[in-house]
């Protein structure tokens, strides 16, 4: 029950950015300072979560070693940027397959 409440609050919190965006069309200057800072924080948040997942994982990912996660990342990046021309599907798959190969 608590978790449903939390989910509802998180959904509403997300909509707080979506809804007002419909209303404010000319109010905020996309080249302004406030907008620039908001963008920086938005990028930093998700990068922080992903890097924490890779550097100090919790849950199941904690079963993998630093080396394994580093090699998976390299495989995914190589497949995405070099082998294919930014094919996200192949890149993600390469990262997961690398883990399987390392464990065989």
């Amino acid at each position: 029950m608590d978790l449903w409440l939390l989910l509802g609050a998180c959904g509403a919190a997300t909509y707080l950015w979506r809804g007002p965006g419909v209303r404010i069309s000319a109010g905020l200057d996309p080249r302004g300072e406030l907008f620039s800072w908001i963008s920086c924080v938005a990028y930093a948040i998700i990068a922080g979560v992903v890097s924490r997942m890779l550097v100090i994982p919790t849950g199941v990912l904690a079963e993998t070693s630093h080396l394994e996660r580093a090699l998976c990342s390299v495989a995914a990046l190589a497949a995405y940027f070099w082998l294919t021309r930014r094919n996200l599907f192949v890149g993600v798959l390469a990262g997961a397959l690398a883990l399987c190969l390392l464990r065989l």
Binding site: V50, L54, L61, E63, C72, L77, Y80, V92, G95, A96
Partner: peptide
């Protein structure tokens, strides 16, 4: 299962850097 969970950080690593 581990490989599936690994797909999540990989997906973001690529989409963000890309």
């Amino acid at each position: 299962r581990l490989a599936l969970v690994m797909m999540v950080p990989m997906y973001y690593l690529l989409i963000l850097l890309g």
